[in-house]
Design a protein around this nucleic acid. Structure first.
Lengths: 223, 223
DNA sequence: TTGCTATGAATGAACG
DNA sequence: CGTTCATTCATAGCAA
């Protein structure tokens, strides 16, 4: 009922996704520029005349709060999992389009779920099942040609203490991560990598829903 | 007509303004950093080839083991992605063979790439874009599983742009070509000089006129 | 906390 | 083109 007061614009999912990507791109680009600048600066640390200080001071500061990203992932309930496993076991792992729909419908009775979730689940299940079979004797230093070893610099920034980075948001938080990319000022050295900041549809059903950036005021149920 | 009107999100002017500002902030920061970098670079252009080229693109390696062999799978750099998205959004979405060549040529300035990559990218982008529309993400349902179905169906029809106080967000300007400003940023060791080449795959697009939400002010024309 | 692992999701490439 | 596969990214949990 609040819509009477608002004069809203409509965005398609695609546009939103696009926006998200663009901002993420900016984020990354800023990071790169920052990195480059830092390197460049090191080579000539003596004769820099530019007033970069001003940039540092006003544009970047404040909370080092990291990415707002809040793509929370679906987690099958035990019940759902059981059903899925069951289907996987018999159905020879190729649920067609319609099959997905049916399964989804069925699983929906046991908790929140979407067709995409089901689809992904089967994809993953099959893939990993196959891999496990192909590589049961996992040993040797060479065995790790799979996933799992990517935990290297995953610890990049990690969450910032003071608060959940996916808090319910007020519009103010929109700006918080703009500056985070520039934390290099603190000589934070350590390859922080691309980060998906920005909007991320997240709508927790049964949980204490955490909404991303635009949160509730976006006034659309499908988030 | 390809109607994307289904499943729109509504943004209030306030939110849009906020978003615009956030992006503008990124834009500004990038611009400043870029400028800084440019100036800095000029002062020492002579010595060192500075291997700062791909700061991010090497994300996949360092996997502990000694299999230094490069990754087998191409990963677009943020800049490349920007360009691709940009082109994708310019109405066309169906780059002809020559178009692929041009695009590839342009993207090559931002990193390793081949025509096949571009081709695949567009194929995938299109396919997924399409599927996403048919299958709106994450079902939300805090209500009981019971009437979910009805609600879901209803929601889909609900948000249509033509509604009185709602206006559609134009795709134009959603994707400004960020890459143009960054051409000097990730130039390859080879040319080490900013090259002004614009593929111009831009076909004036479906120029449904400016006035897009993020249009005029979310980026500085001075770039 | 710190780190590891399992696994949901994203996506480049290949197939029919 | 629409699907499917293979690989990688990112995060929820759990262990040390």
């Amino acid at each position: 009922m609040e819509n009477t007061a608002l004069c809203g614009k409509v965005m398609t999912d695609d546009q939103i996704e696009t926006l998200r990507r663009q901002i993420a791109a900016y984020s990354t680009i800023c990071e790169q520029l920052a990195e480059m600048h830092r390197e460049t600066t090191l080579r000539q640390e003596s004769f820099t005349g530019m007033g970069m200080t001003s940039l540092y001071s006003d544009s970047a500061m404040a909370c080092g709060s990291s990415k707002i990203s809040a793509r929370q992932r679906w987690t099958p309930t035990p019940m759902q999992l059981q059903i899925l496993e069951s289907i996987f076991y018999q159905g020879s792992g190729t649920p067609n389009k319609q099959g997905i729909k049916d399964i989804t419908a069925k699983l929906a009775e046991h908790g929140q779920i979407s067709e995409t979730n089901v689809y992904n689940w089967f994809q993953n299940r099959r893939a990993r099942s196959k891999r496990k079979q192909a590589n049961p004797t996992q040993n040797n230093a060479e065995s790790e040609e799979a996933e799992c070893l990517n935990a290297k610099r995953a610890r990049t920034e990690k969450l910032v203490p003071q608060s959940s980075n996916l808090s319910p948001v007020s519009d103010d938080h929109l700006f918080q991560d703009v500056s985070s990319e520039l934390r290099f000022v603190d000589q934070d050295h350590g390859g922080s990598r691309a980060v998906y900041s920005f909007i991320d549809a997240s709508k927790v059903a049964n949980g204490s829903g955490g909404m991303a950036v635009f949160g509730n005021s976006w006034s659309n149920p499908s988030w």
